[in-house]
Amino acid sequence: MKGETTGPSDLELVARLRPRDRAALEALYDRYAHCVYSLALSIVRDQQAAEDITQELFIHLWQFTHLYEPERGAFVSWLLRSARNRAIDILRRRSRDYQVGVQFDTMSALAQDDPDDLVLRADVAAGLRRALAELDSGLREVLELAYFSGLTQREIAERLGLPLGTVKTRVRTALRRLAEALAGDRES
């Protein structure tokens, strides 16, 4: 991650938010705003809404720095989980304006010579993309609907014409494989 190789770590920057260090906020924004914005845009498909989500998330972090608990995982993971939650909320409040057909991007390499991509913990993110690419299409299709669409498991089952139990099993299996891939990358 850029923060660990070219400057203060994410943890250090988050700690500096507490005494209201604006430079730390700027650094975190520069590292992760494009990640937050990209994810939000993938879900809501609305530039203004994606901007609002990004703005609200960073302001919220600024106001409540203790919301991120390091023992619960990497900062970028927490940030993007929060972004997804906000984006899915917006989808569901738009009277079931669900987004289907959104797919994970497993092709874009997190090139080391791309300054933007250095902001991510490249080995973990790349490992995750590899694991995603290795999922069979049935698992991946269900996971993409579960992650991006705002549909419930029952609605996913209806949309795909699958038994509810199959959808549950596929969501669980897909996430377990990804979690195992993440754990493997960290141990290696």
């Binding site: 700027e26 924004y29 520069d30 705003a33 494009h34 990640c35 914005y37 990209s38 994810l39 845009l41 993938s42 530039q47 994606a50 901007e51 990004t54 703005q55 619960r72 995982g73 990497a74 970028v76 993971s77 927490w78 940030l79 993007l80 989980r81 972004a83 997804r84 994970f104 991007d105 497993t106 874009s108 933007d116 991509d117 991510l120 973990v124 993110a125 995750l128 993309r129 995603l132 992650y147 996430l175 990804l178 979690a179 993440l182 754990a183």
Partner: peptide, 23 residues
């Protein structure tokens, strides 16, 4: 552990730069 995986999944989307004015 699952939540952290879900967070990392958010990196697997096509990167789009936010408008410069947002910063």
């Amino acid at each position: 552990r699952i939540e952290e995986t879900l967070g990392w999944l958010g990196t697997a989307v096509r990167t789009v730069e936010p408008p410069p004015t947002l910063r």
